[in-house]
Design a protein around this nucleic acid. Structure first.
Lengths: 157, 157
DNA sequence: GCAACCTAGATGACGTGTCAACTATATTAT
DNA sequence: ATAATATAGTTGACACGTCATCTAGGTTGC
């Protein structure tokens, strides 16, 4: 119930800049990847985790890694399966479970997309910053992430 | 056609952190605003620009300010009008034109949402960072934004 | 062994964002 | 004047993400 502390000038620069940057960078990366590889950034994120995990993961592991809601994950995996990027296989040790398996086509898709994507990330962000800014960005993100409410308790007053 | 320069350790920390931070902060801010004010972040952005512009703007001005595609803007404004947050009025000096006007209800909505939103932004980001990090963030965003391709020429090879 | 609870995942409805047309009005060049 | 083009905005189809709800299979306690 206290008075609001509005943002001062530096705070406002940082916040408005943050918003504009994230909006535009996301849109650019998304467009570029979609045009050149036919993948969305979400597809790419799924494929990255799979290919870093010996090409198969339980769905809930994927969801935890990506921090996605399970319904989002479920919808997305269904669409990716329809496009042949992954398959869904029943789990023998847990009747509720689901293995998500990278297909040959999924592997090919990410191997083609990765170099283009990395060069986009470099061009738009990494190569724009000097070493101390890069280090600062890494520290900033770690600090902010560390301060975020864990899981679903967004109402931690 | 040259070999890809993959990300080194600091670059990777910065980039993975950036992705995780933006994903999660956006999701938290969105949830909080939707729950407490019934507005999406997009609604809020529109209302902010309108209220900073004497409560009325041409649609194309709004689109330029937000850097939204015109179809996105059109869809979004239609939905906002249906909820009574804005009205759309024909422009007398340009037959193609459209004035977007903030309604009393829209003004009330943003005035109620703003303090909550600012305190969320503080809690999740601003207050997590020390003054030099805030300054660094402002500079980083300005540098990245300055390096982005202007408009639609994303294919500037 | 059974009830209560928890976890993994699916589903349908709905709001949102993008893309590719499309309409209509203004501007420019000749 | 008029034809070519540019600008302002709309529309429909479709992919995406969220919420609430549901099913089914585990787990725990008694």
């Amino acid at each position: 119930m206290s008075e609001v502390r509005w943002l001062d000038e530096t705070e406002s620069r940082a916040w408005r800049g943050y918003q504009a940057m994230t909006d535009q960078v996301t849109a650019l990366l998304q467009q570029s990847m979609m045009r050149q590889s036919g993948l969305s950034l979400s597809d790419y994120a799924v494929l990255v985790y799979l290919s870093e995990s010996e090409d198969r993961l339980r769905a809930y592991e994927l969801g935890a890694a990506l921090r996605w809601e399970k319904s989002r994950l479920s919808h997305h995996l269904r669409r990716m399966e329809k496009r042949g990027l992954i398959t869904r296989q029943t789990c023998e040790t847990d009747g509720r479970g689901l293995w998500i398996v990278l297909t040959a086509r999924g592997r090919q898709a990410i191997e083609e997309a990765a170099p283009v994507h990395v060069s986009d990330v470099r061009r738009y962000i990494i190569d724009q910053l000097n070493p101390s800014q890069l280090e600062a960005l890494a520290e900033i993100t770690e600090k902010v992430l560390g301060g975020l409410p864990a899981g679903d308790d967004a109402c931690a007053d």
